[in-house]
């Protein structure tokens, strides 16, 4: 549980210290013209950005808990470490490229370069789908080698962790598909900018999660 506690501790410290900063040295019972000007828009960020940030905290909690469960279960005597397929290195490289491609698309959207959006989104999407396909092939290799989900908890965790990560990417692909459809039907860079920016953050987040997860899987 240490891992979860560290992650959640970091999230809680951020949230609580930010909230405390708003509350220290205030005397809400005293009339204050400066406070009269404050509102929800004072944070100067969009609702969707805030929504995604909050969701990333939730997702972090999920992944941290899975990894905590992994490290706790590992200590039991029946644990037989799994030799991860070498294909995972290739998949990781693909996911890194997908993240880079999304970032490249984001730069285009920010600078208003509508022409570059189509190739950018296409490359990002294809790379992401390739990664998911690669993960499926890795599963097949394991199954062919007799490493079934029920034969050992290490195998079970491998399938479970990769599946949960994949499901999160699929959710991202749904947003990607909506945005891509818009761009194909002639949307300007400005109208899809926020969506692309947030997707980029999400892709980077899932890349980071994958690298941490892959590291944990490799080292145990």
């Amino acid at each position: 549980m240490t891992i979860t506690l560290v992650f959640l501790g970091a999230i809680m410290v951020t949230v609580i210290s930010w909230l405390l900063k708003q509350t220290l040295n205030t005397e809400p019972w005293v009339s204050d013209p400066a406070a009269d000007a404050v509102s929800g828009t004072s944070l100067d960020t969009s609702n969707k950005t805030m929504g995604l940030t909050t969701f990333l905290a939730v997702a972090t909690s999920i992944f941290a808990l899975f990894i905590s469960a992994y490290t706790l279960r590992m200590q039991e005597p029946d644990w037989r470490p799994l030799a991860e397929p070498a294909l995972l290195w290739f998949n990781t490289a693909i996911l890194v490229l997908a993240s880079i491609a999304y970032h490249w698309t984001r730069n285009a959207a920010v600078s208003g370069n509508t022409a570059r959006l189509k190739p950018g989104l296409l490359i990002s999407g294809v790379l992401t789908i390739m990664f998911l396909g690669g993960q499926l092939i890795a599963w097949q290799q394991l199954i062919a080698g007799g490493f079934y989900v029920w034969t050992n908890p290490a195998n079970a965790f491998f399938y479970l962790l990769t599946a949960v990560h994949g499901v999160h990417l699929l959710g991202g692909l749904w947003v990607w598909a909506r945005c891509t459809t818009k761009v194909w039907t002639g949307a300007e860079a400005d109208s899809v900018r926020l969506s692309i920016e947030l997707c980029t953050v999400y892709w980077h987040f899932l890349l980071l999660v994958w690298i941490v997860m892959f590291g944990v899987l490799l080292s145990t």
Binding site: L19, S39, G40, N47
Partner: peptide
């Protein structure tokens, strides 16, 4: 709950009317 919860958090942070500081 997660769908509702995202709403509650973001609404409190982003949609307060003018003059509504967190400490009010």
């Amino acid at each position: 709950f997660t769908m509702g919860g995202l709403n509650y958090v973001v609404t409190v942070l982003q949609a307060r009317c003018r003059g509504m500081t967190l400490m009010r």
